[in-house]
Amino acid sequence: MKARIIGTGSYLPERIMTNFDLEQMVDTSHDWIVARTGIKERRIAAEGECTSDMATIAAQRALDMAGIKAEDIDLIVMGTITGDYPWPATACIIQAKLGAQNAFAYDLSAACSGFLYALSAANDYLANGRGKRALVIGAETLSRIVDWTDRNTCVLFGDGAGAVVLEAQDGESGILSTHLHSDGNYLELLYQPGFGSRNPSSPEGVDARLPYLKMQGNEVFKVAVRSLTDVSKEALDANGFSSADVGLFIPHQANLRILEATAKRLELTEEQNFINVDKYGNTSGATIPIAMDEAFRQGLLKEGDLLLSAAFGGGFTWASALIRW
């Protein structure tokens, strides 16, 4: 029994923020951003538009593709670091919006690896015969936690949501394996300092930048490339495949330089390496399901193809999944 992806969906906000828009906000330039990140534009959520709004649309589109009703879902698991509230889980809000009254729902926090962590959890649940169908979502509203005066970080991130429907099936297609890792020693290279129990909100004496994410980009880059390469090889080795067997590689869309360096180390061709970071920026846990939906709808993923996916995020966390489409 394997958990097979039977539907994909995504949602991107209407507002497009280009690099030229950012030139009017911070000391940067289009050429500077493209040279260092490959990003040309990103999507920004509208005023009043929150993570559950975007995730619900992406989820409904995945359900529609799968031909599944919301009440047929047994589990909703959501990878996010920008939920509607600190608690309850945004997955519960999505459950209510969809009318998925037969599902239990929870959020999972693993930063940019959140979708693959959530996919692994749902896969284990279905493969063990505990349910028939699951909805796995990655969604972020990173524009709400970005410091728009910090040119080193604000140019990187965008908003969006992606989702897949999993169904337990017999056969060759489905999730072949997932591989999860973390190392908390790297915490301060990429994190959001406030507002948790360590740095709680307070009426007085609060650093106005505490809610914003912090990143030491050069150090993150070094660890990210190594970790993405190693965890991708781990997935291939575990299943007896090589890079040449991969139909499509969908990595977390963080930075074009990271994606190209990882693909080179894995000896993947340009045709194998799916990239859309230029259009959407880094949407954290949403990048992989958005890319899956885009690739599938473009005809780049066909039945029987071998899909390799890998992610790296704050924590540090990193993960991979090998999927027979």
Results as ranks from 00 to 15, higher is better:
1 M>V: 06
12 L>T: 09
16 I>C: 05
17 M>V: 14
21 D>T: 00
26 V>K: 02
32 W>P: 11
37 T>R: 14
37 T>F: 05
39 I>L: 01
44 I>Q: 14
47 E>A: 02
51 T>M: 00
53 D>E: 10
55 A>V: 00
63 L>D: 02
69 K>E: 08
79 G>L: 07
82 T>G: 08
89 A>N: 13
89 A>F: 01
94 I>Y: 09
95 Q>Y: 04
95 Q>C: 01
96 A>S: 15
98 L>V: 03
99 G>I: 13
101 Q>F: 14
108 L>Y: 14
114 G>I: 00
117 Y>D: 11
121 A>S: 15
121 A>V: 15
133 R>P: 12
144 R>N: 10
146 V>Y: 11
152 N>P: 09
154 C>Q: 11
155 V>E: 03
157 F>Y: 02
162 G>E: 05
165 V>K: 12
168 A>Y: 15
168 A>S: 15
174 G>V: 13
179 H>L: 03
179 H>R: 15
180 L>Q: 14
185 N>R: 14
186 Y>V: 10
190 L>H: 14
194 G>E: 08
195 F>P: 09
196 G>A: 10
206 V>Y: 03
211 P>Q: 01
212 Y>S: 02
213 L>A: 09
216 Q>T: 05
221 F>V: 01
221 F>P: 07
223 V>N: 08
226 R>W: 02
230 D>R: 00
230 D>K: 05
235 A>L: 03
235 A>T: 04
237 D>A: 13
245 D>V: 01
246 V>Y: 13
246 V>G: 13
247 G>T: 00
252 H>F: 03
253 Q>F: 07
273 N>Y: 10
275 I>E: 14
280 Y>Q: 11
280 Y>L: 10
282 N>K: 08
285 G>V: 08
288 I>A: 01
288 I>C: 08
288 I>K: 00
289 P>C: 04
291 A>S: 15
293 D>F: 06
305 D>P: 04
310 A>F: 14
311 A>T: 12
315 G>Y: 00
316 F>L: 13
318 W>E: 01
322 L>V: 03
323 I>K: 07
